[in-house]
C-alpha cells in the first residue's frame, strides 16, 4: 500500500506586498501553504534575505563585517556595498542615531541620510526606526515624503503611532509599512484592523510579529508566528494574511552568546562565529515559523540563509 500524500494546500493565501521598483523589486508573500512547504504547492515568492547596517555604518567591530565593507566610508558607499553582498535581496538601514534616548539626531539629518542611502542602493530599501514611538511617527512622515517614488518599507508602525506613520507613508507618499506588535496574535490582529480602518489595504502592510534570539523566549515568537499563519491560511482570517518580516540581526547580535569576549569565556571560542551561528539559527527558525523576509548583518549569515531558502524551494 503506497503512502497516501495529503498536501495542505489552502484556499486562502498570504497577501503579496512588493517593495522597491523596477526589476530589482521584491515581492513578499503570496503562498497558500505553510512556511517552506514547497512540496505541498509551489511557493511563488520564496522568502527574502535583507542586509542590515546602521546609520552609523556597519558594525566594524566584527572582523568579517569590517572586511566586507572595507573601503566603503560614506553611508552611501556602505549601502552600495551591501547591495553586492551575495545572497542579498534587499537592504535595511537602521536609524539608530535618531533615538531620543541616544544621539537624538534631528529629523532633517536623518532624512538626508535616508536620501543618500536611497540614491545609492540598487536593491529595495527597508528603513528601521529609532524604536521610539513619538520620534518614529515624525521621522517616518518626513522620510516617506523625501523618498517618494522609491516604494520603501518603513518599519515599524506600532499601535501608539500607527496612524501617523500609516497615513503619511502609505496614503500620502505611497510607501509600505511594517506593522509591529509584540509577540501576541491578538495584538497583531488588532493593529492590522486599526490600519485597515484607515482605509489601507493589506497589499501595503508587512507584519513584524516581534523578535527574540534563539534561547531568549523564542518559543513565544515561534508559536505566535505559527498561530498567525494557521489563522491566515486555515481560518482565512484576512486581518492576519499580511506577509511577515523579522529583523533578526538586532537581537542575534546583542545577546551574551554573541557579544561576550573570548577572554571572558575562553572555551566558547571567537565571538564572531558565535554571532554568525546565533544569527543563522534564529533566522532559520523564524523562516520555519513563517517569516517571508529576514534581516541579517553578517555576510556569512546572509550566504547561509539565502542558500537554505534556495535549497528548500
Amino acid at each position: 500500500m503506497p503512502f497516501k500524500r495529503t498536501p495542505q494546500q489552502f484556499a486562502a493565501s498570504i497577501k503579496e506586498v512588493t517593495i522597491g521598483t523596477g526589476d530589482k523589486a521584491v515581492t513578499l508573500g503570496g503562498e497558500n501553504v505553510f512556511p517552506l512547504y514547497s512540496f505541498d504547492a509551489p511557493i511563488s515568492n520564496p522568502p527574502k534575505v535583507g542586509v542590515e547596517f546602521s546609520d552609523t555604518g556597519p558594525d566594524r567591530s566584527v572582523p568579517g563585517i569590517a572586511a566586507f565593507y572595507a573601503g566603503a566610508d560614506s553611508l552611501g558607499d556602505v549601502a552600495k556595498r551591501a547591495c553586492d553582498m551575495p545572497g542579498a535581496d534587499f537592504v535595511s538601514l537602521v536609524l539608530e542615531s535618531a533615538d531620543p534616548n541616544g544621539d537624538d539626531m534631528p529629523i532633517e539629518e536623518c532624512v538626508a541620510l535616508c536620501r543618500e542611502v536611497a540614491e545609492a542602493v540598487s536593491l529595495p530599501l527597508v528603513i528601521q526606526g529609532s524604536k521610539n514611538v513619538e520620534k518614529d511617527a515624525k521621522l517616518f512622515e518626513k522620510v516617506a515624503e523625501a523618498l517618494q517614488g522609491k516604494n520603501v518599507l518603513l518599519m515599524s508602525a506600532r499601535e501608539d503611532n500607527h496612524k501617523a506613520i500609516a497615513v503619511a507613508a502609505v496614503m500620502a507618499y505611497g510607501q509600505k509599512i511594517g506593522a509591529e506588535s509584540s509577540v501576541d496574535i491578538n495584538l497583531a490582529k488588532q493593529l492590522n484592523v486599526l490600519v485597515s480602518q484607515l482605509g489601507i489595504g493589506g497589499e501595503n502592510v508587512v507584519m513584524n510579529l516581534g523578535t527574540a534570539a534563539a534561547g531568549y523566549g523564542f518559543e513565544y515568537v515561534a508559536s505566535t508566528m505559527d498561530r498567525v499563519r494557521g489563522a491566515a491560511l486555515a481560518q482565512n482570517d484576512n486581518m492576519l494574511q499580511m506577509p511577515a518580516i523579522t529583523p533578526v540581526a538586532g537581537d542575534a547580535w546583542s545577546v551574551k552568546e554573541s557579544v561576550a569576549p573570548e577572554e571572558d569565556f575562553p572555551e566558547w571560542g571567537p565571538a564572531e562565529q558565535r554571532g554568525v551561528s546565533m544569527e543563522i539559527s534564529t533566522a532559520a527558525s523564524v523562516l520555519a515559523a513563517g517569516a517571508n523576509a529576514v534581516i541579517l548583518r553578517h555576510p556569512d549569515s546572509v550566504a547561509a540563509v539565502s542558500k537554505l531558502v534556495s535549497e528548500l524551494m
Partner: peptide, 19 residues
C-alpha cells in the same frame, strides 16, 4: 562547538517548553 551549541540548545530549550 560552542558556537553551534549555544544557539541550538537554547532554541531547543525554548521550543520544548510546555506553553
Amino acid at each position: 562547538g560552542y558556537a553551534q551549541a549555544l544557539p541550538l540548545y537554547g532554541l531547543r530549550q525554548n521550543i520544548y517548553t510546555d506553553p
